[in-house]
């Protein structure tokens, strides 16, 4: 066993996902099966192999600070896209108890 039920609870906490106890069992079983399978990578000799770090071989990319390379959205539209608001303010519940 790679994972225990309490690990699944911890992962759910880290991922900020609420899961039911029935789902916890199913998730544990699914994750266990997948992790058992991907364990085959352990056996591959990768000594001296540099890891891939992304989809592109390009190095640092900079773009000019030009007006035509930014998406300009009117503030009103941005506010409208926010789920909870009050006048011109964006609302979120309190962060601390």
């Amino acid at each position: 066993m790679i994972l225990k039920e309490k690990d699944v609870e911890h992962l759910a906490e880290l991922a900020r996902i609420e899961i039911s106890s029935a789902e916890k069992k199913k998730l544990l079983q699914d994750l266990e099966e997948i992790l058992e399978h991907v364990k085959e990578l352990e056996k591959v000799n990768t000594e001296g192999v540099d890891p891939v770090t992304g989809g592109t071989a390009k190095k640092n990319e900079y773009r000019g600070d030009d007006e035509d390379v930014c998406v300009s959205t009117p503030p009103k539209e941005l506010q409208d896209a926010f789920p909870d608001k009050d006048g011109g303010h964006l609302k979120v519940p309190h962060v601390f108890d």
Binding site: L27, L31, L41
Partner: peptide
């Protein structure tokens, strides 16, 4: 959940880093 696990403390090298080497 799977992604959170492979990136979590103590497992990163065994899973994610190794996978990126196999990808190479």
């Amino acid at each position: 959940m799977l992604g959170t696990f492979v990136l979590s403390h103590g497992y990163y090298d065994a899973y994610y880093a190794q996978a990126q080497k196999v990808r190479r």
